[in-house]
């Protein structure tokens, strides 16, 4: 058996943390992009478009993220599409993130008075112009705090990628545990690292929320 000093353990965990951060970022960027598209589709008031968004949201909110990851990873390869653990993790986390962001943003957009749409329409602004100049600037202010808050869920969600063999923080923790049989020490460290990633985001989200409430 290989000996792992505390230094080795920490070094390995911190190295793996990079992958957790990278995966979180990728999922967040992917999720935001898809959620923006879905939000625009929902706002068109086209029934078919709205239906698609509704089904999408229900599908990905109504099933466990782990199953989505399994399906992306094993399912796609069974269908003949070779997909890496990295690719499957990003794909499923993007589905997961976007499905929740669409709903969060829907709430934010719906809090804006209907009069903002009507005034824009009466001034001759097109749908996209209204979105860009009137709705989004106001909605973004409201949506920032809950969106940052949700990013914590994305980070924690990346831990599931360990199950399909993607080597990130949780996976390295498991591997180190198998090698050292020191679960308490190792998983405490792993949890601590997640906490250090998530806590500042939670704090920042709370801070934004307060700032927004005061300025209203």
């Amino acid at each position: 058996m290989i000996e792992f000093s505390n230094y080795d353990i920490l070094r390995n965990l911190l190295f793996a943390t990079q992958w957790t951060i990278l995966l979180s970022l990728a999922a967040f960027i992917g999720g935001t992009t898809v959620a923006l598209t879905l939000t625009a589709m929902r706002l068109t008031r086209n029934p078919a478009m709205q239906r698609i968004v509704k089904v999408y949201v229900e599908l990905f909110q109504g099933t466990p993220l782990l199953m989505q990851m399994f399906l992306c990873f094993f399912g796609l390869s069974m269908l003949g599409y070779e997909i890496s653990a990295w690719g499957a993790a990003i794909l499923s986390l993007t589905f997961f993130t976007s499905a929740f962001l669409v709903e969060i943003w829907r709430g934010c957009i719906d809090t804006l008075p209907k009069g903002q749409w009507e005034a824009s329409r009466c001034l001759g602004l097109s749908f996209l112009q209204t979105l860009r100049h009137i709705i989004l600037p106001q909605a973004i202010r409201v949506a920032t705090a809950p969106t940052v808050g949700f990013s914590v869920q994305v980070i924690k969600g990346t831990a599931l990628a360990s199950v399909i063999g993607f080597v990130e923080l949780t996976k390295v923790g498991t591997m180190l545990n198998n090698a050292t049989f020191e679960p308490f020490k190792i998983f405490t460290l792993v949890a601590l690292i997640y906490f250090m990633l998530c806590y500042p985001l939670s704090l920042y989200s709370k801070h934004l929320e307060k700032k927004f409430n005061v300025s209203r």
Binding site: P113, Q116, E118, A119, C122, L123, Q138, R141
Partner: peptide
């Protein structure tokens, strides 16, 4: 129709009871 309403907006202005200014 969107296109029509936009053309209409060139000849019809509307003022609302609750102003509907753009607060940002």
């Amino acid at each position: 129709e969107d296109i029509q309403v936009r053309r209409l907006a060139l000849s019809v202005g509307m003022i609302f009871q609750n102003f509907n200014l753009f607060p940002h």
